[in-house]
């Protein structure tokens, strides 16, 4: 899933300054799971903004809140025109994709990002998420025992560890495991160290001319030799 962190409160207050009526828009999918912008966070932020405004004595804004099932999918935007009709700005707590989907759907409406979208990751434990995929478009997990060196090695190198690894940790961050030590150990366990010994050529960055688009192939997959 996509993992994000809510922006600092003061940054959010600064962004909304020019606008009177603010819709705080949550997202019910990834942002809910990573506690950055689901229904609960929308409600907390709504209360915090109201409280801060009351304390400052300057009643510049009115707030409303709503949480979509998914901001990145037009299918779920149906009820939104009604909510957006009476506001001056949408403060989206969706990921960067959500913010842009809302902006594309409402050409006249300013949309502000309420979170910093960080990475694609997994839940490590309650409240802890770890990055696992860089969406490079050229998956090589087959060769690296299911551990991604592009994401988990700070240098994203492909032919084994650099000399900076100490006690199994990364030179850039002593709390972070060296991806290549993990890969070596797991390949060894799987009796596939020959994969470590192979030469891997430089990455082909042409697989990721940005922005990328994927068009679904025919629903029926035709196998080899299928006429």
């Amino acid at each position: 899933m996509i993992v994000a962190e809510q922006k600092p409160f003061e940054e959010i207050r600064r962004m909304i300054t020019p606008y009177e009526r603010v819709l705080i828009l949550g997202c019910g999918t990834c942002m809910t799971v990573c506690d950055a912008g689901g229904e609960r966070e929308v409600s907390f932020l709504h209360n915090a903004l109201r409280l801060a405004q009351a304390r400052s004595g300057d009643v510049a804004h009115t707030f409303s809140e709503y949480t979509l099932k998914r901001q990145c999918d037009p299918e779920f935007l149906e009820l939104l025109p009604e909510k957006v009709a009476d506001v001056d700005v949408v403060l989206s707590l969706g990921c960067g994709i959500g913010v842009q989907a809302i902006a594309e759907s409402f050409p006249e409406m300013p949309v502000l990002p309420g979170v910093n979208t960080s990475f694609m990751g997994m839940t490590k434990e309650s409240g802890v998420w770890d990055e696992r995929c860089a969406a490079c478009g050229d998956c090589r997990l087959e060769d690296t025992a299911g551990i991604c060196p592009i994401t988990r090695c700070t240098k994203g190198i492909l032919n084994g560890p650099c000399a900076g690894t100490k006690k199994g940790k990364c030179e850039a961050n002593k709390d972070m495991d060296c991806a290549w030590i993990l890969i070596y150990q797991r390949l060894e366990r799987l009796q596939q160290l020959d994969k470590m010994r192979r030469y891997y050529p430089p990455r082909n960055f042409r697989t990721i001319p940005r922005p990328r688009r994927i068009v679904t192939k025919a629903a029926v997959v035709t196998g080899e030799g299928d006429g």
Partner: peptide
């Protein structure tokens, strides 16, 4: 942990 370094040396 020298073994992975030796693999890289070979390469």
């Amino acid at each position: 942990f020298v073994e992975p370094q030796l693999v890289k040396f070979d390469k």
